Structure formats: structure tokens, C-alpha cells
Simulated scan of single mutants.
Amino acid sequence: MLEYMLDHVRAELIDTVHGLSETEARRRLVPSMTTSIGLVKHAAFAERMWFQHVLGGLPEAECDGAMAGEASFEVSDDETVADVIAEFERAGNRARAIAAEIDLDATRQRPGFGTVSLRWIYLLMIQEFARHAGHSDILREQTDATRRT
């Protein structure tokens, strides 16, 4: 059930950017740096941080993408919406592969969080991606409203 729910919110986050132009996906509609494409980019970072680095024990240098916290929302000019979605999907696929080999109650240490289990990581990611899908839904509503005017 945890895996199903995580996959469900992953798909919901991706759905919020489908059909957006490159300009629309990058448009800042709130005072922060939050953009629709930036939320997906950040989610890919979160997948790498929690599944590859924390759960899988990989050094940050061996994770398959950027590991910068706040900069994780930044999307370079040469990255497309399709590129960022593909990055998030790759990170999710690798997360599934790592988690498949680990018991739900297996624990790891994470500075700032203490002892966490795979079960805890699943719940954290479900919460994180659901929240960001909600943020992106609102940005999508704002974008869609400007199309009608």
C-alpha cells in the first residue's frame, strides 16, 4: 500500500505539468522561486536524497543527479519539461529498485532526523509529493485561468 500510494502521488505531481509550455512551466506565480517545473525537479532531488543516499547508503557523489538542497528547485535554461519529468521518473525507478531489497522496518541514520526506517521514508515521500502536487495544482489553475482571458 505504501508503494502504491507513493507511485500515485508521483504520477499526480507529473500530471500537473503535462500540457504546460516551457514558458508556463517556468512562470513564477507566487513570491517564492516555486514553479511547476521546479517542484518536479525538487522531487527528483528528494528521491535521490532519501532512497539513494540515506536508504541505499550511496555517497552524494555517486547519486545520479544534483544533491543541492534549496538549489534543487532550480531548473537550467537548457532543461525541458520532458527532461525534468524523465529525471524524476529515473529517480523513482532507482528508488523502487533500492527499496525492493530492504525490509520496511530496516533503519538508517540521517543527521537532523535521527533513526528512520524505510516505512518512515515512504510516509515522508508520500507527504512531500502530495504537498508539492497540491502546490503545482494551484499553479496550474492560475496558468489555465490566464489562458482563458
Rank of each mutant, 00 (worst) to 15 (best):
E87D: 15
V75R: 04
D64A: 09
M5S: 06
L29S: 04
K41L: 11
E12M: 04
E70M: 09
R131H: 05
M49W: 14
F88E: 09
D103L: 00
T35H: 08
Q142E: 08
G69C: 06
H135M: 01
R90Q: 15
A130N: 12
D137N: 12
D7Q: 15
I85Y: 11
Y4L: 04
P59S: 05
G57A: 01
L39S: 10
V84D: 02
E87W: 05
A86W: 13
A25Y: 04
P31V: 10
T35F: 12
A133G: 06
T34W: 06
A133N: 08
G69H: 13
G69F: 09
A11S: 13
P31L: 10
I138F: 10
G69Q: 12
V75G: 08
I126A: 11
A97Y: 00
R108N: 08
I85G: 11
V17M: 06
E141V: 04
L39A: 05
F45H: 05
T115N: 08
G92H: 04
E74F: 11
V17K: 02
Y122R: 02
G134S: 07
R148E: 15
F73P: 13
R119W: 02
S136F: 11
R28C: 05
A25L: 07
H42Y: 09
P59N: 03
V116G: 04
A91D: 00
T107V: 03
A44F: 00
A130L: 11
E24M: 14
A95P: 03
A106E: 12
A44N: 04
F113S: 10
F73Q: 08
R147P: 05
A100P: 00
L139E: 08
W50K: 10
P31I: 11
V54W: 05
K41S: 15
G92P: 02
Q127K: 07
D105W: 02
A95I: 01
L20I: 14
I37S: 12
A82D: 13
L104S: 03
L20V: 14
D77Q: 08
T115D: 09
A97N: 06
E128D: 09
E24S: 10
E87I: 08
S117H: 03
P59W: 01
M49S: 03
F129S: 00
M67E: 07
T16Q: 15
A133C: 05
A25F: 05
D83A: 04
